[in-house]
Write a protein that binds this DNA or RNA. Structure first.
Lengths: 253, 253
DNA sequence: GCCGAAAGATGAATCGGATTCAAAAACCGG
DNA sequence: CCGGTTTTTGAATCCGATTCATCTTTCGGC
């Protein structure tokens, strides 16, 4: 029946509102600035209503992360079809992630906080699944690029490593660097600056180590820079690059 | 005077007791199982006394992490002097860290939680500094191995990358893999298993990509395994390996 | 050995927020 | 418009970190 239908729609709209406002709060005041009762009041609902959508504060945070993860993941969809060599497309994936992180510093802090056992334990099962699923398109993109590289002969044929396991390297490198870069004062203590530049160089070393052609010497700053620029240009042209990319405005900070 | 001296010693002993018991608590019941008043009672002190040592719960957690980081860092000291090629010693560093993480799962979760902005913000400045400083020996070891590799010609001479920045690659790879491996259900969702085996392979790819000799093909499982075993044996022989290594027993879980 | 000041320890009271739930309101089909 | 059902409400509850007024201990001088 239609009544029931409208109900569902309204419920979803309200949930979206909660998530949207929560995200704003986090952007403006940080994770600590998010208080359940304040948020509810902001949205002109009672505290209890908020709890009809989210089992707990952590659950809400997971929902926020899921929403942003979807936006993030969407950016990767078009990459496999880019008019670039396979290795450059792999770089495109890394650069896209770096850019996203640069524009959404809260997002990384949030996910980092979320996967912490203490927090993760309080996220309801369906929301955990949803968050994991939201990232799927990224894995799909990576898989596609690695598979094509193998078919095309850019990358030696699979020995004992799947496409996903191949992608795990840059993924871990990425996550690790984000993590180190975000830890207040950590890299400074070791007099390391511009962590993302290093991420790119180590990425090239990693790919070259796997014999992904055309090999590129990570220790040739000008070559690395040129390749970065070339790929960034392709991304920009495809409308994937920087700034707001036709998504809801909310992310563009 | 001597009285004042004794006072200080007693105070330090008490602080050590708090940290030790807190660590036990965390090992047994997880981070959530640590409650300030319970901990104080456990140690037969009043809650307020606990707060004379630690500004906040987070501060205490940082102290626990610092203590364990010292133990962890101590394991790296002897590595530069090991009777192995420079590249193998670099691997030794990575393996040592993997082993430590395997024996101290809580430690990684704890640090991961700590560097989260929300938590880090509540750690007092001196404790932050102490935690950062505790890790210094690791950086020293890495620096030594990289520098020797360059002098010895195993690694091309520095172009535009310092020893620390070189070490940043494996470091980020390590941290990232730990992070991914710790996120409940994440890697399973991508059908990836044995993350540490992959960490080792990607590590070799990274080193080979930087032309660190003797190069080693990450896609030769038997070669990789043999090298891992060889280095593990050397570590065991040097008493750095697995299990309790003459440190306080507390870590050996 | 005794005294008053200073330093340290105590734990009950306070505080901040997440979460709950009994009551009130809105909604429903007839 | 009605009785029953579903939603919403927000004040009360709960939980644990943190504080602080009070009590104890320590200490140097007498």
């Amino acid at each position: 029946m239609s009544t029931e239908d409208r109900r569902r729609r309204e419920r979803e709209a309200r949930e979206a509102l909660f998530i949207e406002r929560a995200h704003e709060r986090i952007r403006e005041d940080g994770l600590l600035g998010l208080q359940m009762s304040k948020l509810a009041a902001d949205c002109e609902y009672a505290t209890g209503t908020l709890y009809q959508h989210f089992d707990s504060r952590e659950d809400l945070l997971a929902a926020v992360a899921t929403r942003t993860t979807r936006e993030r993941a969407a950016r990767f969809r078009a990459i496999p079809a880019l008019d670039l060599g396979t290795r450059s497309r792999m770089l495109a994936i890394v650069l896209t992630d770096i850019d996203f992180a640069a524009h959404n510093p809260d997002y990384y802090r949030l996910t980092q906080y979320l996967v912490t056992e203490v927090v993760w334990a309080n996220v309801s099962v369906p929301r955990r699944a949803a968050l994991l699923e939201a990232g799927q398109p990224i894995s799909v993109a990576v898989h596609a690029v690695v598979a094509e590289a193998r078919n095309h002969g850019d990358l030696p044929p699979a020995r004992a490593i799947s496409e996903e396991e191949m992608g795990l390297g840059p993924w871990a490198l990425n996550v690790g660097m984000q993590s180190l870069a975000n830890a207040q004062g950590l890299l400074d203590a070791y007099d390391i600056h511009r962590p993302y530049d290093h991420l790119i160089r180590h990425f090239h070393a990693l790919m070259t180590g796997w014999r992904w052609e055309p090999r590129l010497d990570p220790d040739e700053p000008s070559v690395v820079r040129a390749e970065t620029e070339r790929v960034r240009a392709a991304l920009r042209e495809a409308g994937i690059g920087d700034a707001k990319a036709g998504q809801e405005g909310s992310v563009a900070d």
